[in-house]
Computed example of a mutant assay.
Amino acid sequence: MSGPGGQPFPLSKLAFMYVKKIAQPLANRIAVRAKKDQRFKEMFCLPPANLYHFYEAKIKFIFMNIGKIRVTKVPKLDEKTAIELGSNLCAEFIIMSIASVIALNEVMKYKERERLKDEASDKEFTELTDYVKRLENVIDAQNQKINEMLGLKCDSNEFLRYSGSFAVDWPAASKSTKSATAKADANSSAQKI
């Protein structure tokens, strides 16, 4: 995969150059401090520079296939070059660390926002399901009351049918029920006498 200029990943190279440019003032300050402070130079500038130079030389020898000689000892850098390389590495490491922390913070904020959205949608979903369940309970209760009312109507119709005075015409049915009840009252009073 190569870009338009024939170089692989041109945007990553551009980003790395941008970081180097931003880190340059910090690298200059680190180099000045390393020249003044021997302990700072030995702890922060020289070890990363020597380590970087050692592995860079080994990798170059392997990939360039320079001779069949195995590299056992890489020549050390002189102190001025090592301080410059070490200060550049330290500055780039600091800038990349800060950028990584900022990016990680943004990712964590994004995840928190997504988690809050998910919680809100889950809460809304549970509220809707609870509401639907309550509506189902209300509908069941109303259906039960309707069935009870239908049952009462059926019971009253059966009562009228069994008394022998059930008719399609309600006013006629009510007159016949009155006369039937009057006869029943007359019979019961006759029996008492």
Rank of each mutant, 00 (worst) to 15 (best):
G67M: 02
D118E: 09
L46I: 15
S176W: 05
E127P: 00
G3F: 06
Y131C: 01
S156T: 04
F166H: 11
A103S: 11
S179T: 05
D155N: 12
M96C: 14
D118L: 07
R115Q: 13
F54S: 02
K20C: 06
I146C: 00
L51G: 05
D155Y: 07
L26H: 04
Q144F: 04
R70F: 04
I66G: 08
E114D: 10
I102K: 02
A173F: 06
K41D: 08
N157C: 03
E92S: 14
T177G: 04
E84V: 10
K21C: 09
G67S: 04
K13S: 11
K80Q: 06
M43K: 15
I98C: 13
G67R: 01
A49H: 02
E127S: 00
K41T: 06
A141V: 00
F61E: 12
V107M: 10
S12R: 15
K123H: 09
S189Y: 04
A31C: 00
A190R: 12
Q38F: 03
A99F: 11
L128M: 13
V138F: 11
F40L: 03
T177L: 10
A180H: 06
F63T: 10
S176K: 08
E124T: 10
G3T: 11
K58D: 00
L116T: 09
A34N: 02
L51F: 15
L89I: 15
V101T: 10
L104H: 12
M1P: 07
K80A: 05
Y131Q: 08
S2Q: 08
N88Y: 04
K123W: 10
Y162F: 11
K145M: 04
P75F: 02
F16R: 14
L14K: 15
F166Q: 10
S100K: 13
E106M: 12
E148P: 00
N187T: 05
I69C: 08
N65F: 03
V32N: 05
E119S: 10
